[in-house]
Every structure is written in C-alpha cells, then in structure tokens.
Design a protein around this nucleic acid. Structure first.
Lengths: 196, 196
DNA sequence: GTCTATAAGATGATAGAC
DNA sequence: GTCTATCATCTTATAGAC
C-alpha cells in the first residue's frame, strides 16, 4: 500500500524549478548543479534529467516563469496605482524585497552577467525579461510625463534604460557589500529626479 | 643549448594573470578553469598552481591588479582634466572601451554578481574596487558642485553610488543585448543631469 | 619553474529496471 | 516518474622528478 513517491501532478517539476530559481539567484548558472537540486528536493539527478533533459532547458524554463510572474506583478502595480512616482517606487520595491528578505539577486541580473556562457535559449529569455521591464517602465514614465506628474531630462525610453540599469547595478553592489540600504539609496536617487 | 622554457622573470605570472583577467571578464569566476589558462598560455595546470596555489589566490591577485591599474587611470583623468563633466565622461569611457573593443564586462561587475560563491579574499578585493570608484566619483562630483559646474539633486555620495550602479548595470544590459549603444545611452543619461 | 602522474571528487548526461 | 548504475569528462589540487 505504500506509495511513498506518489506526487501531486507537476509537484516535482515545480519543486525543481523553485529550487533552481533560488540557486541561480544566489549562485548563478555556473554556480549550481543538478546535484544541489536533487539533494534539496529529495530526488536523484536522473529524475531531474527526466523533466529537464539539459541544464539549459531547466534554466530557460526558470527564466521564462520568472518573467511571466514578474509581468503579472507589473500589470497589477499599473492597475492599482495611478501615480507614476509610487508606481516606480513599487517597482523598485520588488527588487528590494528579494534582496532584503531572501538575499537574492534579480534572476536575470545574475544570468545577464553570465550571458557569454549561457545556452542561447536562456540568454534569449533573459533578454526578453529586460525588454519587458523596459517596456513597462517606458509606459509608466511616458504616461507620467503626459499627465504632468513627471518631468524628464531625457526621453522616456532612455530614462527606462537608466532606471533598469540602476536597479540591476544597485542590487549587485548592495549584495557585494551586504548592505540593503545601499540599494535603497540608489533606487531613490534614480527615481526622485523624475518627479515634477 | 636549447632552453625553451626559460622565461623573462615574472613573465609567466603576468601571462597567467592577463589570461585569468580576460576569462573572468568574459565568463566569470565560476566560468573558467585552470585548464583554460594552461591551454592559452601554453603551460600545464600544475605550473599555475605553483604560482597560485588555489583559484581564489589567483582571482584575488587578478582583482587586486585590476583595482590598482584602475586607480592609476582614475588619478590621471583627475590630473589632466579639470572639467567635472568631461571627467565623468572619461570615466564612463573606460567601461565603454572594455565593452566595445573587447566585449568585456567590468571584472568586478562580473565578480560582484558572483559574490555569494567567491572566496572571501576575492570578495573583499571586489568590495575595495567599488569603494575606490565611489570615492573617486564622490570627489569629482563634490568638487564639481563646489565650483558651480555641477548641480546636484542628491548629495555627492548618493550620486556617486547611482553613477557606479548605472555603469555596472549598463554594461550587463548592453552585453546581454550585444548593443554597445545601449551602454552609451545609459551612461549619458546618468551623467548629463548632473551638469549645471 | 615546469613537468608527469595522479588523486579525489564533481559534473552533465544516458540506459535500462521498476 | 523515479530509481540504480554507469559514463566520460572536467576540476581543483598535490607529490615528486627534472
């Protein structure tokens, strides 16, 4: 009667992706192995290969889910908050929370640095994530200017690029120094000048 | 009479450090091995261990030299150029050149993302590099404001942090997209608003 | 200072039983 | 879908000859 390995359908896959996401955020693509995941999830590495034949397949799916979830959150921020400044602050808050509560880099900030060693499908997911961020930021910033609530010294696309760079760079610096306040300072300095 | 392995004193060590620096800028600490260096320099991995017992020793020395050289260049910029705006543009130009001409990340931007997996001595060298940058930027920015050539919306230390974050984040984004112009846009957007 | 030889363990991945 | 077993290769590192 014992069926100790019976699982809720898709449960193992979810655990694997969850674990891989956490590992990548902390250690990067080249800093984790199937073994790390196997030990944490309580399965064998062969089982991971059943679900994700190669490490690139796994990382690509992790990055894909990360982007999809991020997209949903971004939409919900835009939906519930009409103020461009607090929208941008909520945006920065997403990165801040990951950093402060889980000591995590942005998954794509980590993978982005490793771009040169990434399987192409992974690199492309990372690129899509950044594009998603830029598009959202550009819309928020352009809308804010049109409403007279932001005053820009450079075009909205440029400001969007700068803000994203500040987030990713700020996370990296804060993490190296183990100082979340450093990220807050950078995020605030990046957003505040846009306010009219 | 053949002494094929005779070397100019310190020449091999220099070649190893040069090669390791290049590899780290491209692939990161966890993305290269002693084997990569051995093949490129034309020696055996055991010879590298003679000069650098552990990978951490090697990376720490690479990061140390990188910081020292960077410091020299920063001083020379400050010495020959009194204008704060063009000083900052020259600063950004350092990163831009590495990116455009060698497709290189900043060595410490790469290592910084990997902070969690780095041997402590390496992590500390990286932290020193960032401190060096912040100090230089802070001085340039504070001097510029005192002379009335810059007009700051936030204190000089905060602006210095933001500028550094924009450089590191901008390099990562530009590299992931293989688009140097993206870095230029970000660098300009970070510097221009400081001009009085 | 460089080499050969070697170790001990990690790594991504596959074949085939259950 | 998970397991055992196995693989070839890579990785960091050391011992000792030259």
């Amino acid at each position: 009667m014992a069926r100790p390995k019976a699982q809720i359908p898709g449960e193992t896959v979810t655990q694997i992706i969850d674990c891989a996401e956490d590992l990548i955020c902390h250690r990067g693509y080249n800093g984790f192995s199937y073994r790390d995941i196997a030990e944490h999830v309580g399965i064998r590495t062969a089982s991971i290969h059943y679900h994700f034949p190669t490490k690139g397949d796994l990382a690509a799916q992790v990055a894909k889910r990360y982007g999809e979830r991020f997209n949903v959150i971004l939409q919900s921020i835009a939906d519930r908050d009409p103020n461009p400044v607090t929208r941008l602050e909520a945006y920065a808050g997403l990165f801040r929370t990951a950093l402060a509560e889980h000591d995590r880099m942005c998954l794509c900030g980590m993978l982005g640095a490793e771009s040169a060693t990434l399987p192409e499908p992974v690199r492309l997911e990372v690129e899509s994530f950044f594009q998603l961020n830029r598009d959202w930021l550009e819309t928020v910033i352009a809308d804010g200017e049109r409403e007279g609530k932001l005053s820009l010294r450079a075009p909205a696309p440029t400001q969007a690029h700068l803000l994203l760079a500040a987030m990713e760079g700020g996370m990296m610096l804060a993490r190296n120094k183990n100082d979340t306040a450093l990220f807050d300072m950078i995020a605030h300095a990046a957003i505040e000048p846009l306010a009219a």
